[in-house]
Amino acid sequence: MLDTNDAFDANGAPGTDSAPSADLPALACESVTMRFGGLTAVDGFNLRVPKGALYGLIGPNGAGKTTVFNIVSGVLRPSAGAVKLFGVDVTGLSPDRIARSGIARTFQNIRLFRNLTVLDNVLVGLHLRREANLAQAMLALPRHRAEETQMAATAAQLLEEIGLAGVSHYRASALPYGRQRRLEIARALATKPAVLLLDEPAAGMNPAETEDLMRLITDIRNRFSLTILLIEHEMKVVMGICERMTVLDHGDTIAEGTPDEIQRNDRVIKAYLGGGAVARA
């Protein structure tokens, strides 16, 4: 299966064709601040995710994790600071342009196109990479037809790799919870991202499903040469698969490092894990 996915091997990041410099982070937040009226949800947030990393963003409830995600994916425009994708400033672009430039995301509460089939959900993800314009599509010109065939093949292959091939004609809402989560990841991958943001992918899953998911995440990272930024609550998930992580608390960055360093960090233990949680992790 690995050798057949040439449709995905080139990561779609802007400017990466012309010799990407090795030290340029895939995703960087530079003193990003978000204020909602009097409340500062995120304060001077810095992040450097190297290319190919599996990076964790953790913190207790209300720490500002999802706010960071919404800023990076363009849902929110930060009050100050910049978001850079391979050194290109993407701060404040609309979500569809962010997706176009190579950042895809999943949502904490699953947001699938519920009435579309599993296959169509993935095809919507492919929409932004289409070449045929509206007139060509409406008139079913050869270019459009070739593209539709190509898209259908790509989508089918993607579903195969994610393990949803058997259910491609089901309505998305008919899938069980764990598979809906998988479909969200497949849909995000269809946009051919360079950076994938996963917002609590293991939320609401049982231990067996969580383990499957962890395997899937490391697997797609390698297969699609992705850079993954992961928000997680479940300590086991982040500690198990992330190489580095940043810990947020009340909008402030309180620690940054490898899982081992984080586990030993006093501020993290005090602010987030609490005494008992260290043993559990």
């Binding site: 997706a99 949502f107 009435n115 579309l116 919507v124 929409h127 599509a137 409406m138 079913a140 539709e148």
Partner: peptide, 30 residues
């Protein structure tokens, strides 16, 4: 026109907007 449109990727994008606007935009639908 309707049958054609709904068979194109544009038609799918419209249905995606109907189902979830936020997700559609995050998937690159303008």
């Amino acid at each position: 026109v309707m049958v054609r449109l709904m068979r194109t990727t544009y038609g799918r994008a419209l249905k995606a907007i109907r189902d979830d606007e936020v997700a559609a935009e995050a998937m690159g639908v303008n």
